[in-house]
Design a protein around this nucleic acid. Structure first.
Lengths: 123, 123, 123, 123
DNA sequence: GTGGTCTAGACCACA
DNA sequence: GTGGTCTAGACCACG
Protein backbone atom coordinates (compact mmCIF):
# COMPACT_ATOMS: atom_id res chain seq x y z
CA UNK A 1 0.00 0.00 0.00
CA UNK A 2 1.96 2.97 -1.25
CA UNK A 3 0.36 6.32 -0.55
CA UNK A 4 0.65 9.48 -2.60
CA UNK A 5 2.29 12.15 -0.57
CA UNK A 6 3.20 15.54 -2.02
CA UNK A 7 -0.24 15.89 -3.57
CA UNK A 8 -0.11 19.68 -3.95
CA UNK A 9 -2.16 21.03 -6.85
CA UNK A 10 -0.44 22.75 -9.76
CA UNK A 11 0.21 26.41 -9.10
CA UNK A 12 -1.90 27.60 -12.00
CA UNK A 13 -4.92 25.78 -10.55
CA UNK A 14 -4.23 27.15 -7.08
CA UNK A 15 -4.40 30.61 -8.59
CA UNK A 16 -7.61 29.68 -10.39
CA UNK A 17 -9.05 28.75 -7.00
CA UNK A 18 -7.78 31.91 -5.44
CA UNK A 19 -9.26 34.16 -8.10
CA UNK A 20 -12.49 32.17 -8.22
CA UNK A 21 -12.81 32.69 -4.52
CA UNK A 22 -12.34 36.43 -4.90
CA UNK A 23 -14.95 36.53 -7.63
CA UNK A 24 -17.48 34.48 -5.70
CA UNK A 25 -17.28 36.63 -2.64
CA UNK A 26 -17.58 39.81 -4.69
CA UNK A 27 -14.06 41.10 -4.24
CA UNK A 28 -13.75 40.95 -8.01
CA UNK A 29 -17.00 42.00 -9.58
CA UNK A 30 -18.69 41.06 -12.87
CA UNK A 31 -17.12 42.94 -15.75
CA UNK A 32 -14.10 44.02 -13.75
CA UNK A 33 -10.62 43.85 -15.29
CA UNK A 34 -8.16 41.39 -13.81
CA UNK A 35 -4.51 42.41 -13.44
CA UNK A 36 -2.57 41.88 -16.69
CA UNK A 37 -0.72 38.63 -17.13
CA UNK A 38 2.58 40.31 -16.35
CA UNK A 39 1.33 42.26 -13.34
CA UNK A 40 -0.29 39.20 -11.88
CA UNK A 41 2.92 37.23 -12.44
CA UNK A 42 4.93 39.73 -10.41
CA UNK A 43 2.23 39.95 -7.76
CA UNK A 44 2.15 36.18 -7.34
CA UNK A 45 5.86 35.63 -7.77
CA UNK A 46 5.45 33.18 -10.62
CA UNK A 47 6.27 33.06 -14.30
CA UNK A 48 3.96 34.94 -16.70
CA UNK A 49 3.32 31.70 -18.56
CA UNK A 50 1.81 30.23 -15.43
CA UNK A 51 -0.64 33.12 -15.15
CA UNK A 52 -1.36 32.81 -18.84
CA UNK A 53 -2.38 29.24 -18.20
CA UNK A 54 -4.50 30.32 -15.26
CA UNK A 55 -6.38 32.84 -17.38
CA UNK A 56 -6.79 30.36 -20.24
CA UNK A 57 -8.26 27.82 -17.87
CA UNK A 58 -10.63 30.39 -16.41
CA UNK A 59 -11.72 31.43 -19.88
CA UNK A 60 -12.35 27.80 -20.74
CA UNK A 61 -14.53 27.60 -17.63
CA UNK A 62 -16.38 30.66 -18.84
CA UNK A 63 -15.82 32.74 -15.73
CA UNK A 64 -13.57 35.18 -17.49
CA UNK A 65 -13.45 36.78 -20.94
CA UNK A 66 -10.36 38.08 -22.65
CA UNK A 67 -10.22 40.91 -25.15
CA UNK A 68 -7.04 40.96 -27.19
CA UNK A 69 -4.96 43.99 -26.46
CA UNK A 70 -7.27 45.10 -23.67
CA UNK A 71 -7.10 42.59 -20.88
CA UNK A 72 -8.97 39.85 -19.09
CA UNK A 73 -12.34 40.57 -17.51
CA UNK A 74 -14.70 38.79 -15.13
CA UNK A 75 -17.69 37.56 -17.13
CA UNK A 76 -20.91 39.49 -16.80
CA UNK A 77 -22.92 36.30 -17.17
CA UNK A 78 -24.42 36.11 -13.69
CA UNK A 79 -25.62 32.59 -14.30
CA UNK A 80 -22.06 31.36 -14.72
CA UNK A 81 -20.98 33.16 -11.58
CA UNK A 82 -23.84 31.62 -9.64
CA UNK A 83 -22.91 28.15 -10.92
CA UNK A 84 -19.31 28.80 -9.92
CA UNK A 85 -20.32 29.61 -6.38
CA UNK A 86 -22.31 26.39 -6.11
CA UNK A 87 -19.45 24.43 -7.62
CA UNK A 88 -16.87 25.73 -5.17
CA UNK A 89 -19.22 25.23 -2.26
CA UNK A 90 -19.92 21.64 -3.24
CA UNK A 91 -16.23 20.89 -3.64
CA UNK A 92 -15.40 22.18 -0.17
CA UNK A 93 -18.28 20.40 1.50
CA UNK A 94 -17.41 17.20 -0.34
CA UNK A 95 -13.82 17.34 0.90
CA UNK A 96 -15.00 18.03 4.42
CA UNK A 97 -17.42 15.14 4.44
CA UNK A 98 -14.78 12.80 3.05
CA UNK A 99 -12.27 13.75 5.76
CA UNK A 100 -14.81 13.43 8.55
CA UNK A 101 -15.94 10.07 7.24
CA UNK A 102 -12.34 8.87 7.41
CA UNK A 103 -12.38 9.73 11.10
CA UNK A 104 -15.50 7.65 11.54
CA UNK A 105 -18.04 10.42 11.96
CA UNK A 106 -21.67 9.98 10.97
CA UNK A 107 -23.64 12.67 9.16
CA UNK A 108 -25.39 13.70 12.36
CA UNK A 109 -22.09 13.99 14.17
CA UNK A 110 -20.72 16.20 11.42
CA UNK A 111 -23.61 18.65 11.72
CA UNK A 112 -23.41 18.61 15.51
CA UNK A 113 -19.63 19.01 15.44
CA UNK A 114 -20.00 22.00 13.17
CA UNK A 115 -22.59 23.63 15.41
CA UNK A 116 -20.50 23.01 18.50
CA UNK A 117 -17.56 24.59 16.72
CA UNK A 118 -19.57 27.76 16.17
CA UNK A 119 -20.77 27.79 19.76
CA UNK A 120 -17.22 27.53 21.06
CA UNK A 121 -16.05 30.21 18.65
CA UNK A 122 -18.57 32.70 19.94
CA UNK A 123 -17.46 32.33 23.54
CA UNK B 1 1.27 40.50 -1.98
CA UNK B 2 3.23 37.35 -2.61
CA UNK B 3 1.34 34.16 -1.89
CA UNK B 4 2.79 30.89 -0.67
CA UNK B 5 1.90 28.19 -3.13
CA UNK B 6 3.48 24.76 -2.95
CA UNK B 7 2.41 24.46 0.69
CA UNK B 8 2.53 20.65 0.85
CA UNK B 9 3.33 19.43 4.37
CA UNK B 10 6.50 17.49 5.14
CA UNK B 11 6.04 13.81 4.42
CA UNK B 12 6.57 12.73 8.04
CA UNK B 13 3.67 14.92 9.14
CA UNK B 14 1.49 13.58 6.38
CA UNK B 15 2.16 10.09 7.72
CA UNK B 16 1.36 11.30 11.23
CA UNK B 17 -2.02 12.43 9.94
CA UNK B 18 -2.57 9.18 8.15
CA UNK B 19 -1.79 7.04 11.19
CA UNK B 20 -3.73 9.32 13.50
CA UNK B 21 -6.69 8.90 11.26
CA UNK B 22 -6.40 5.13 11.40
CA UNK B 23 -6.17 5.23 15.17
CA UNK B 24 -9.13 7.52 15.59
CA UNK B 25 -11.42 5.44 13.50
CA UNK B 26 -10.37 2.26 15.30
CA UNK B 27 -8.42 0.65 12.51
CA UNK B 28 -5.46 0.74 14.85
CA UNK B 29 -6.61 0.00 18.42
CA UNK B 30 -5.30 1.09 21.80
CA UNK B 31 -2.30 -1.00 22.76
CA UNK B 32 -1.83 -2.39 19.28
CA UNK B 33 1.66 -2.65 17.80
CA UNK B 34 2.51 -0.45 14.84
CA UNK B 35 4.61 -1.88 11.97
CA UNK B 36 8.35 -1.62 12.58
CA UNK B 37 10.14 1.43 11.24
CA UNK B 38 11.64 -0.63 8.43
CA UNK B 39 8.38 -2.35 7.50
CA UNK B 40 6.55 0.92 7.53
CA UNK B 41 9.27 2.52 5.41
CA UNK B 42 8.91 -0.16 2.74
CA UNK B 43 5.13 -0.03 2.90
CA UNK B 44 5.13 3.72 2.39
CA UNK B 45 7.99 3.84 -0.09
CA UNK B 46 9.86 6.26 2.15
CA UNK B 47 13.20 6.47 3.85
CA UNK B 48 13.30 4.76 7.31
CA UNK B 49 14.54 8.01 8.83
CA UNK B 50 11.30 9.65 7.80
CA UNK B 51 9.28 7.01 9.63
CA UNK B 52 11.54 7.34 12.63
CA UNK B 53 10.69 11.00 12.70
CA UNK B 54 7.00 10.20 12.34
CA UNK B 55 7.08 7.88 15.35
CA UNK B 56 9.08 10.38 17.41
CA UNK B 57 6.56 13.09 16.68
CA UNK B 58 3.68 10.82 17.60
CA UNK B 59 5.38 9.85 20.82
CA UNK B 60 5.89 13.52 21.61
CA UNK B 61 2.16 13.96 21.06
CA UNK B 62 1.56 11.08 23.45
CA UNK B 63 -0.45 8.97 21.06
CA UNK B 64 2.13 6.18 20.78
CA UNK B 65 4.63 4.65 23.19
CA UNK B 66 7.85 2.93 22.19
CA UNK B 67 9.20 0.05 24.20
CA UNK B 68 12.89 -0.61 23.62
CA UNK B 69 13.38 -3.86 21.79
CA UNK B 70 9.67 -4.47 21.35
CA UNK B 71 8.34 -1.82 19.02
CA UNK B 72 5.94 1.09 18.92
CA UNK B 73 2.43 0.79 20.34
CA UNK B 74 -0.72 2.87 20.30
CA UNK B 75 -1.18 4.39 23.73
CA UNK B 76 -3.73 2.81 26.02
CA UNK B 77 -4.52 6.16 27.53
CA UNK B 78 -8.09 6.57 26.30
CA UNK B 79 -8.13 10.18 27.33
CA UNK B 80 -5.32 10.98 24.93
CA UNK B 81 -7.05 9.12 22.12
CA UNK B 82 -10.25 10.98 22.82
CA UNK B 83 -8.36 14.27 22.76
CA UNK B 84 -6.73 13.27 19.49
CA UNK B 85 -10.07 12.60 17.94
CA UNK B 86 -11.33 15.99 19.01
CA UNK B 87 -8.14 17.63 17.80
CA UNK B 88 -8.36 16.15 14.31
CA UNK B 89 -12.04 16.90 14.12
CA UNK B 90 -11.47 20.50 15.15
CA UNK B 91 -8.72 20.90 12.57
CA UNK B 92 -10.92 19.63 9.79
CA UNK B 93 -13.91 21.68 10.84
CA UNK B 94 -11.69 24.73 11.24
CA UNK B 95 -10.35 24.33 7.73
CA UNK B 96 -13.82 23.85 6.39
CA UNK B 97 -15.18 26.94 8.10
CA UNK B 98 -12.21 29.00 6.90
CA UNK B 99 -12.74 27.95 3.28
CA UNK B 100 -16.46 28.58 3.39
CA UNK B 101 -15.94 31.96 5.01
CA UNK B 102 -13.60 32.88 2.16
CA UNK B 103 -16.50 32.23 -0.20
CA UNK B 104 -18.67 34.55 1.84
CA UNK B 105 -20.90 31.99 3.54
CA UNK B 106 -22.45 32.64 6.93
CA UNK B 107 -22.59 30.04 9.70
CA UNK B 108 -26.23 29.27 8.97
CA UNK B 109 -25.48 28.81 5.29
CA UNK B 110 -22.70 26.37 6.12
CA UNK B 111 -24.99 24.17 8.18
CA UNK B 112 -27.73 24.37 5.58
CA UNK B 113 -25.27 23.65 2.77
CA UNK B 114 -24.01 20.60 4.61
CA UNK B 115 -27.50 19.28 5.19
CA UNK B 116 -28.44 19.87 1.56
CA UNK B 117 -25.32 17.98 0.53
CA UNK B 118 -26.44 14.96 2.53
CA UNK B 119 -29.94 15.17 1.11
CA UNK B 120 -28.61 15.25 -2.45
CA UNK B 121 -26.23 12.39 -1.71
CA UNK B 122 -29.06 10.13 -0.52
CA UNK B 123 -31.02 10.57 -3.73
CA UNK C 1 8.16 12.87 -41.64
CA UNK C 2 8.59 16.56 -41.02
CA UNK C 3 5.52 18.62 -41.81
CA UNK C 4 5.42 22.19 -43.03
CA UNK C 5 3.36 24.24 -40.66
CA UNK C 6 3.33 28.03 -40.84
CA UNK C 7 2.44 27.81 -44.51
CA UNK C 8 0.87 31.27 -44.77
CA UNK C 9 1.16 32.68 -48.29
CA UNK C 10 3.21 35.80 -49.04
CA UNK C 11 1.19 38.93 -48.41
CA UNK C 12 1.32 40.09 -52.03
CA UNK C 13 -0.36 36.87 -53.13
CA UNK C 14 -2.98 37.19 -50.44
CA UNK C 15 -3.82 40.59 -51.85
CA UNK C 16 -3.92 39.13 -55.35
CA UNK C 17 -6.51 36.67 -54.10
CA UNK C 18 -8.45 39.39 -52.40
CA UNK C 19 -8.59 41.63 -55.44
CA UNK C 20 -9.31 38.71 -57.76
CA UNK C 21 -12.23 37.84 -55.57
CA UNK C 22 -13.58 41.39 -55.79
CA UNK C 23 -13.22 41.36 -59.55
CA UNK C 24 -14.90 37.99 -59.97
CA UNK C 25 -17.92 38.94 -57.97
CA UNK C 26 -18.28 42.23 -59.81
CA UNK C 27 -17.27 44.55 -57.03
CA UNK C 28 -14.50 45.72 -59.33
CA UNK C 29 -15.78 45.83 -62.89
CA UNK C 30 -14.04 45.37 -66.24
CA UNK C 31 -12.21 48.56 -67.21
CA UNK C 32 -12.45 50.04 -63.73
CA UNK C 33 -9.44 51.78 -62.22
CA UNK C 34 -7.81 50.20 -59.20
CA UNK C 35 -6.62 52.41 -56.34
CA UNK C 36 -3.11 53.75 -56.87
CA UNK C 37 -0.22 51.78 -55.42
CA UNK C 38 0.16 54.32 -52.66
CA UNK C 39 -3.52 54.50 -51.80
CA UNK C 40 -3.77 50.74 -51.78
CA UNK C 41 -0.69 50.51 -49.58
CA UNK C 42 -2.21 52.80 -46.98
CA UNK C 43 -5.59 51.07 -47.23
CA UNK C 44 -4.00 47.68 -46.61
CA UNK C 45 -1.44 48.81 -44.08
CA UNK C 46 1.34 47.40 -46.21
CA UNK C 47 4.51 48.64 -47.87
CA UNK C 48 3.95 50.18 -51.35
CA UNK C 49 6.53 47.76 -52.78
CA UNK C 50 4.26 44.91 -51.77
CA UNK C 51 1.35 46.41 -53.70
CA UNK C 52 3.61 47.04 -56.65
CA UNK C 53 4.41 43.36 -56.66
CA UNK C 54 0.73 42.52 -56.40
CA UNK C 55 -0.11 44.62 -59.44
CA UNK C 56 2.82 43.21 -61.41
CA UNK C 57 1.67 39.69 -60.68
CA UNK C 58 -1.87 40.52 -61.70
CA UNK C 59 -0.65 42.08 -64.90
CA UNK C 60 1.39 38.96 -65.63
CA UNK C 61 -1.82 36.98 -65.14
CA UNK C 62 -3.52 39.29 -67.60
CA UNK C 63 -6.34 40.33 -65.30
CA UNK C 64 -5.13 43.89 -65.02
CA UNK C 65 -3.52 46.41 -67.37
CA UNK C 66 -1.36 49.35 -66.39
CA UNK C 67 -1.30 52.53 -68.42
CA UNK C 68 1.71 54.70 -67.77
CA UNK C 69 0.70 57.86 -65.99
CA UNK C 70 -2.91 56.82 -65.64
CA UNK C 71 -3.04 53.89 -63.32
CA UNK C 72 -3.96 50.23 -63.18
CA UNK C 73 -7.22 48.99 -64.67
CA UNK C 74 -9.17 45.76 -64.64
CA UNK C 75 -8.86 44.16 -68.06
CA UNK C 76 -11.79 44.48 -70.40
CA UNK C 77 -11.04 41.10 -71.88
CA UNK C 78 -14.10 39.22 -70.66
CA UNK C 79 -12.56 35.92 -71.67
CA UNK C 80 -9.74 36.42 -69.18
CA UNK C 81 -12.17 37.40 -66.45
CA UNK C 82 -14.24 34.34 -67.17
CA UNK C 83 -11.11 32.19 -67.02
CA UNK C 84 -10.16 33.83 -63.73
CA UNK C 85 -13.51 33.01 -62.25
CA UNK C 86 -13.15 29.41 -63.29
CA UNK C 87 -9.60 29.31 -61.99
CA UNK C 88 -10.54 30.58 -58.54
CA UNK C 89 -13.53 28.34 -58.42
CA UNK C 90 -11.45 25.32 -59.37
CA UNK C 91 -8.86 26.15 -56.72
CA UNK C 92 -11.48 26.37 -54.01
CA UNK C 93 -13.27 23.24 -55.09
CA UNK C 94 -9.94 21.43 -55.41
CA UNK C 95 -8.99 22.39 -51.85
CA UNK C 96 -12.38 21.34 -50.60
CA UNK C 97 -12.22 17.96 -52.31
CA UNK C 98 -8.70 17.37 -51.02
CA UNK C 99 -9.72 18.12 -47.41
CA UNK C 100 -12.80 15.96 -47.61
CA UNK C 101 -10.83 13.13 -49.16
CA UNK C 102 -8.42 13.31 -46.23
CA UNK C 103 -11.37 12.66 -43.97
CA UNK C 104 -12.27 9.62 -46.02
CA UNK C 105 -15.34 10.95 -47.81
CA UNK C 106 -16.36 9.69 -51.23
CA UNK C 107 -17.54 11.98 -54.02
CA UNK C 108 -21.16 11.10 -53.41
CA UNK C 109 -20.79 11.85 -49.71
CA UNK C 110 -19.32 15.25 -50.51
CA UNK C 111 -22.27 16.24 -52.66
CA UNK C 112 -24.72 14.89 -50.12
CA UNK C 113 -22.88 16.60 -47.28
CA UNK C 114 -23.02 19.90 -49.12
CA UNK C 115 -26.72 19.59 -49.80
CA UNK C 116 -27.41 18.66 -46.19
CA UNK C 117 -25.43 21.72 -45.12
CA UNK C 118 -27.70 23.96 -47.18
CA UNK C 119 -30.79 22.27 -45.84
CA UNK C 120 -29.68 22.79 -42.26
CA UNK C 121 -28.74 26.38 -42.98
CA UNK C 122 -32.19 27.21 -44.24
CA UNK C 123 -33.91 25.99 -41.08
CA UNK D 1 -10.05 48.91 -44.37
CA UNK D 2 -7.10 47.03 -42.96
CA UNK D 3 -7.14 43.32 -43.63
CA UNK D 4 -5.64 40.60 -41.48
CA UNK D 5 -2.97 38.84 -43.45
CA UNK D 6 -0.78 36.17 -41.89
CA UNK D 7 -3.79 34.46 -40.40
CA UNK D 8 -2.14 31.06 -39.95
CA UNK D 9 -3.52 28.97 -37.09
CA UNK D 10 -1.31 28.16 -34.10
CA UNK D 11 0.88 25.15 -34.72
CA UNK D 12 -0.60 23.15 -31.86
CA UNK D 13 -4.06 23.49 -33.43
CA UNK D 14 -2.75 22.58 -36.86
CA UNK D 15 -1.43 19.37 -35.32
CA UNK D 16 -4.78 18.82 -33.62
CA UNK D 17 -6.39 19.05 -37.06
CA UNK D 18 -3.83 16.74 -38.56
CA UNK D 19 -4.26 14.07 -35.91
CA UNK D 20 -8.04 14.45 -35.89
CA UNK D 21 -7.99 13.86 -39.59
CA UNK D 22 -5.96 10.69 -39.17
CA UNK D 23 -8.33 9.46 -36.49
CA UNK D 24 -11.44 10.21 -38.50
CA UNK D 25 -10.25 8.38 -41.53
CA UNK D 26 -9.20 5.38 -39.47
CA UNK D 27 -5.45 5.74 -39.82
CA UNK D 28 -5.37 6.01 -36.05
CA UNK D 29 -7.88 3.62 -34.54
CA UNK D 30 -9.91 3.74 -31.34
CA UNK D 31 -7.76 2.69 -28.40
CA UNK D 32 -4.51 3.03 -30.31
CA UNK D 33 -1.51 4.70 -28.69
CA UNK D 34 -0.31 7.99 -30.13
CA UNK D 35 3.42 8.67 -30.38
CA UNK D 36 4.86 9.96 -27.11
CA UNK D 37 5.10 13.70 -26.65
CA UNK D 38 8.82 13.61 -27.34
CA UNK D 39 8.62 11.32 -30.35
CA UNK D 40 5.88 13.39 -31.88
CA UNK D 41 7.90 16.54 -31.24
CA UNK D 42 10.86 15.18 -33.19
CA UNK D 43 8.60 13.84 -35.93
CA UNK D 44 6.91 17.19 -36.37
CA UNK D 45 9.99 19.30 -35.85
CA UNK D 46 8.46 21.31 -33.01
CA UNK D 47 9.07 21.77 -29.32
CA UNK D 48 7.73 19.05 -26.97
CA UNK D 49 5.70 21.69 -25.16
CA UNK D 50 3.79 22.37 -28.34
CA UNK D 51 2.85 18.71 -28.66
CA UNK D 52 1.96 18.67 -24.99
CA UNK D 53 -0.48 21.43 -25.68
CA UNK D 54 -1.84 19.56 -28.67
CA UNK D 55 -2.49 16.47 -26.58
CA UNK D 56 -4.03 18.51 -23.75
CA UNK D 57 -6.40 20.17 -26.18
CA UNK D 58 -7.37 16.85 -27.67
CA UNK D 59 -7.99 15.41 -24.24
CA UNK D 60 -10.17 18.41 -23.43
CA UNK D 61 -12.13 17.67 -26.58
CA UNK D 62 -12.50 14.09 -25.40
CA UNK D 63 -11.00 12.47 -28.48
CA UNK D 64 -7.96 11.22 -26.63
CA UNK D 65 -7.27 9.82 -23.16
CA UNK D 66 -3.96 9.97 -21.37
CA UNK D 67 -2.67 7.48 -18.87
CA UNK D 68 0.16 8.83 -16.75
CA UNK D 69 3.37 6.98 -17.41
CA UNK D 70 1.85 4.99 -20.24
CA UNK D 71 0.99 7.34 -23.02
CA UNK D 72 -1.85 9.01 -24.88
CA UNK D 73 -4.53 6.92 -26.53
CA UNK D 74 -7.36 7.50 -28.98
CA UNK D 75 -10.63 7.32 -27.08
CA UNK D 76 -12.71 4.19 -27.46
CA UNK D 77 -15.90 6.19 -27.19
CA UNK D 78 -17.24 5.73 -30.69
CA UNK D 79 -19.87 8.39 -30.14
CA UNK D 80 -17.21 11.02 -29.65
CA UNK D 81 -15.36 9.88 -32.74
CA UNK D 82 -18.55 10.05 -34.76
CA UNK D 83 -19.23 13.57 -33.49
CA UNK D 84 -15.68 14.53 -34.39
CA UNK D 85 -16.14 13.38 -37.95
CA UNK D 86 -19.30 15.42 -38.31
CA UNK D 87 -17.62 18.43 -36.74
CA UNK D 88 -14.66 18.36 -39.11
CA UNK D 89 -16.91 17.81 -42.09
CA UNK D 90 -19.11 20.75 -41.17
CA UNK D 91 -16.10 23.01 -40.69
CA UNK D 92 -14.70 22.19 -44.11
CA UNK D 93 -18.02 22.55 -45.88
CA UNK D 94 -18.66 25.81 -44.07
CA UNK D 95 -15.32 27.24 -45.22
CA UNK D 96 -15.99 26.09 -48.75
CA UNK D 97 -19.42 27.67 -48.89
CA UNK D 98 -18.08 30.91 -47.47
CA UNK D 99 -15.32 31.13 -50.10
CA UNK D 100 -17.68 30.31 -52.94
CA UNK D 101 -20.18 32.86 -51.73
CA UNK D 102 -17.44 35.49 -51.81
CA UNK D 103 -17.00 34.69 -55.50
CA UNK D 104 -20.71 35.23 -56.02
CA UNK D 105 -21.79 31.64 -56.49
CA UNK D 106 -25.27 30.46 -55.59
CA UNK D 107 -25.97 27.20 -53.78
CA UNK D 108 -27.00 25.50 -57.01
CA UNK D 109 -23.84 26.67 -58.72
CA UNK D 110 -21.74 25.24 -55.92
CA UNK D 111 -23.29 21.82 -56.25
CA UNK D 112 -23.04 21.92 -60.04
CA UNK D 113 -19.45 23.18 -59.89
CA UNK D 114 -18.55 20.32 -57.57
CA UNK D 115 -20.14 17.74 -59.84
CA UNK D 116 -18.42 19.18 -62.90
CA UNK D 117 -15.13 19.01 -61.03
CA UNK D 118 -15.61 15.30 -60.46
CA UNK D 119 -16.58 14.75 -64.08
CA UNK D 120 -13.45 16.50 -65.31
CA UNK D 121 -11.33 14.59 -62.84
CA UNK D 122 -12.50 11.25 -64.14
CA UNK D 123 -11.57 12.05 -67.71
C1' DG E 1 10.23 5.46 -20.09
C1' DT E 2 5.37 8.37 -19.81
C1' DG E 3 2.72 12.82 -19.39
C1' DG E 4 2.42 17.26 -16.36
C1' DT E 5 4.19 21.46 -14.68
C1' DC E 6 7.18 25.38 -14.45
C1' DT E 7 10.68 28.85 -15.74
C1' DA E 8 13.08 32.07 -18.78
C1' DG E 9 12.91 34.61 -22.56
C1' DA E 10 11.31 35.60 -27.24
C1' DC E 11 8.22 37.16 -31.03
C1' DC E 12 3.58 38.11 -32.76
C1' DA E 13 -1.11 40.44 -33.57
C1' DC E 14 -4.24 43.60 -31.91
C1' DA E 15 -5.63 48.26 -30.10
C1' DG F 1 0.48 48.28 -23.57
C1' DT F 2 -2.60 43.63 -23.97
C1' DG F 3 -3.05 38.46 -24.46
C1' DG F 4 -1.32 34.33 -27.48
C1' DT F 5 2.14 31.34 -29.10
C1' DC F 6 6.54 29.09 -29.25
C1' DT F 7 11.17 27.45 -27.86
C1' DA F 8 14.64 25.56 -24.74
C1' DG F 9 15.48 23.20 -20.95
C1' DA F 10 14.35 21.60 -16.31
C1' DC F 11 12.17 18.86 -12.58
C1' DC F 12 8.35 16.01 -10.93
C1' DA F 13 5.08 11.92 -10.18
C1' DC F 14 3.65 7.76 -11.94
C1' DG F 15 4.27 2.91 -13.74
Amino acid sequence: MTKDFQASKPIYLQIVDHLSSQIVRGELKAGQKLPSVREMAVESGVNPNTIQRTYSEMERMGIVETKRGQGTFVTENEQVLQALKIQLQTDIIGGFVKSMKELGFSQEEMVQGLQQFFRREQE
